[in-house]
Write a protein that binds this DNA or RNA. Structure first.
Length: 379
RNA sequence: GGGUAGAUGGCCGAGUGGUUAAAGGCGACAGACUGUAAAUCUGUUCUCUCGCGAGUACGUAGGUUCGAAUCCUACUCUGCCCA
């Protein structure tokens, strides 16, 4: 059992895109990669079998905050970790709950010590400290676990972003200290990824990257983007971060994004992505396809019996037609949510798979520029 | 045949003299969603007009009144009860 490694195989000449292979104790991950989000130990509406066969997921996410509240550490530990509980034998990455510090802002309080949350389930109070978050993630058993950070809103002023970053970096030291003084819980190696913060401010981001690089982690993450700032700002900051993070370690851009966001950020040097968009928007009738964006609820699809998407290698997307999926969604049939989620995830996986091919073949940039226009079209 | 309750916008259903183009729900039609408090949320939904506004509307036909979905009369239809 060994720490995560990253083998860089190709670097694009026209852009900063890279193709590589991450090796974990639960198998390999071909990068660039998209990681479906399975917050509570479930990629919503998609079975593990479907994740393997139809989506062809290589790694999925879980969330510390949610799993800690339910099913709770006792169950997770008794199961032998999340892999065992959900029968998922490929890699898992767990987010730290840092994003919940941001998104549950109505029910939490921040201090130097940590973040005091009020459970959205029963209102009970829980203190998350960097140490506790490391301990919880050890028990959940993610192959990759994330540092506990604060994710300030995209519009944050310099002063707030600076003090927030200070807190995040102090928390980072405590995360590593705890992580390094505890052991892998289930026999395979767990890896801690630190997270760059600093809002939209260049010097803060640069300082953050430098600080984080010194940790010499097996991979690094960029957080605090696509949280309200303009898209161009996101690209600008992302590029700056990529330029200041180690070349030979995977770079993970957290929470991004649309299909076009993903290929644009691949072009800037990002290797890993996660986002709720394919599943959440899928459940809400928005389909991302090879030809553009579809709101499958729209009347125009009522009698369109063509496949949801025959431009990707996914049996579900090829098999079901638009009129049927519209009917299912309008009827609030559970099958509709499943099909939409599987299709969107398969499309996302297809994007990163093709991106990788084009990076290796050397025509990534022109392919990307063509696809970005095509995918954004509203059908 | 007798009695009784009722008839409201695509549907269900509030409203019993003016603040009612008419609550609410459903349906329909759009929109939003980026490390998931989201199978959620928002908007529109009589006609004409970009809008201001105007015109038609609460079974049908009359009537009372300054004013009626709301009161009166007749009719039509529907539910229920009794024969």
């Amino acid at each position: 059992m060994a720490a995560l490694t990253f083998q860089l195989q190709h670097t694009d000449t026209q852009s900063k895109a890279r193709a590589g292979t991450i090796t974990t104790d639960h198998g390999e991950i071909q990068t660039p990669i998209f990681m479906p989000v399975g917050t509570v130990g479930s990629v919503k509406a998609v079975t593990q079998q479907q994740l393997h066969k139809d989506v062809q997921a290589q790694i999925i996410l879980g969330n510390t905050y949610h799993l800690y509240l339910r099913p709770g550490l006792e169950v997770l530990e008794a199961a032998g970790g999340l892999h065992q509980l959900m029968n998922w034998n490929k890699p898992i990455l767990t987010d730290s709950g840092g994003f919940q510090v941001f998104s549950l802002s109505g029910v939490r309080k921040l201090t130097e010590e940590g973040a005091l949350f009020q459970s959205h389930i029963d209102g009970s109070r829980h203190l998350f400290t960097p140490e506790k978050v490391m301990d919880i993630q050890r028990i959940i058993g993610g192959d990759i676990i994330m540092a506990f950070d604060e994710c300030p809103p995209g519009a944050s002023e310099y002063k707030y972003a600076e003090s927030s970053l200070g807190l995040t970096l102090r928390w980072l030291d405590r995360c590593f200290e705890r992580f390094n003084s505890t052991k892998d819980k289930y026999g395979y190696t767990q890896n801690l990824f630190p997270i760059v913060q600093g809002g939209v401010h260049h010097d803060l981001r640069k300082r953050s990257c430098e600080y984080i690089s010194e940790k010499n982690a097996t991979g690094n993450a960029i957080g605090g983007l696509s949280v309200g700032e303009p898209t161009e700002k996101m690209y600008e900051i992302c590029e700056l971060c990529c330029d200041h993070l180690p070349v030979n370690k995977p770079r993970y851009l957290m929470g991004v994004g649309t299909p076009w966001n993903i290929v644009e950020n691949i072009a800037l040097g990002v290797d890993m992505f996660d986002c709720v968009m394919p599943t959440r928007n899928g459940r809400n009738a928005m389909l991302f396809t090879s030809n553009g964006v579809i709101n499958i609820d729209n009347k125009k699809w009522e009698k369109d019996f063509s496949p949801i998407d025959d431009g990707i290698d996914c049996e579900v997307s090829n098999f079901y037609n638009k009129a049927y999926l519209r009917h299912l969604m309008k009827s609030k049939e559970i099958l509709g949510l499943q099909i939409a989620s599987i299709h969107n995830l398969a499309f996302y996986m297809d994007i990163v798979k093709k991106a990788r091919q084009h990076i290796i073949e050397g025509d990534f940039n022109s392919w990307k520029n063509e696809m970005v226009v095509k995918w954004q079209q509203r059908l």
